[in-house]
């Protein structure tokens, strides 16, 4: 009896609170443009060398934060490594093992030792970059806290994909020789005309790998951040505390999903790099 009363009281209070939230006017209506969140303004102006403007902007800061975190992790690991692992070391070993056996070991047939540092480095770089994109850092306009990810910028991911692209062909040429590598793009058993066609198609697909690798990562991170931004901003647009409450609850779910996406995208980027490099090393004839 007593319990039921308490329950009813809670329910009433909750309903009243919801009604109050629904009735009282929200804050001032603010203009919000999601695209604005992804615009880059130089923070420190630096002289440009030729066409290359080396000004420090938000994306560069995020890149440096990523690198700093990785360097600190590496140094801490190198200093504190023990045969019997601590929890931290065990966690690092697990992620390392994922890169070693889950990505490189399961996909590449040869050249595992040679190419492991690059692929694992890419995995960790993209992973950390994606994850710190979900941490509010004070690099938004007027040093406000905001979400941004270096990998939500097409040029960053394009540079990363370019590395994979160049390393793929470098690996293929070094292993198979220049002419044999390009000849290996098409099956030698095909008739000559068809063979040339296949060569062209393969070249196009190689270029598209570059595009898809960079755009996949970029678009995933951008879409995630855009949805998060829209959820946060809709509270301002609706001008209602009730809507704000519901939207924040939804944004928590999206945030959790974004953590998953950040991990999956880093995994896919690394595993596709491994697939491409492995494919260039062991060509099918």
């Amino acid at each position: 009896m007593n319990r039921r009363l308490v329950l009813v009281a809670y329910l009433l209070v909750g309903l009243v609170a919801l009604a109050v939230l629904a009735i009282i006017p929200g804050g001032e209506r603010e203009e919000f443009d999601v695209a604005h969140e992804f615009e880059l303004q130089p923070i420190v102006e630096l002289p440009s060398i030729g066409p290359v403007d080396l000004s420090i902007n938000k994306a560069v800061v995020y890149l440096w934060v990523t690198t700093a975190i990785l360097v600190v992790l590496a140094v801490v690991i190198a200093r504190s490594i023990k045969p019997v692992p601590s929890r931290f070391q065990y966690m690092m070993e697990t992620i390392y093992d994922l890169a070693r056996n889950g990505i490189v070991g399961s996909v590449m047939k040869s050249g595992q030792v040679t190419w492991f540092p690059y692929i694992a480095g890419a995995f960790f770089f993209v992973l950390v970059s994606n994850l710190i994109g979900l941490v509010p850092l004070p690099f938004a306009e007027h040093n406000q806290f905001g979400f941004y990810a270096a990998t939500a910028n097409l040029y960053v991911t394009l540079a990363l994909a370019l590395c994979t692209f160049l390393f793929t062909h470098y690996a293929g040429i070094r292993k198979n020789g220049f002419f044999r590598y390009f000849a290996g793009w098409a099956p030698s058993s095909a008739p000559p005309v068809l063979r040339q066609l296949i060569l062209v198609i393969h070249a196009v697909s190689e270029a598209f790998r570059l595009v898809s690798l960079s755009v996949r990562l970029f678009a995933n991170m951008l879409a995630g951040h855009a949805i998060l931004g829209v959820f946060f901003a809709m509270a301002l647009i609706f001008q209602s505390y009730l809507a704000a409450l519901a939207l924040q609850m939804g944004s928590v779910l999206i945030y959790l999903f974004e953590i998953f996406v950040a991990f999956i995208q880093a995994f896919i980027f690394a595993i596709l790099s491994a697939v491409y490099i492995g494919g260039a090393l062991d060509q099918e004839h």
């Binding site: 889950g102 755009v215 678009a219 995933n220 999956i264 595993i271 596709l272």
Partner: peptide, 27 residues
């Protein structure tokens, strides 16, 4: 299951890219 999962993620990555091209076009 380990092998299948790895290849599933590769397939997801490739398939999902198509939707992301549409997303980029929309942007």
């Amino acid at each position: 299951s380990g092998d299948i999962r790895t290849n599933m993620f590769i397939g997801i990555g490739v398939t999902e890219a198509v939707a992301l091209y549409a997303f980029v076009i929309a942007l």
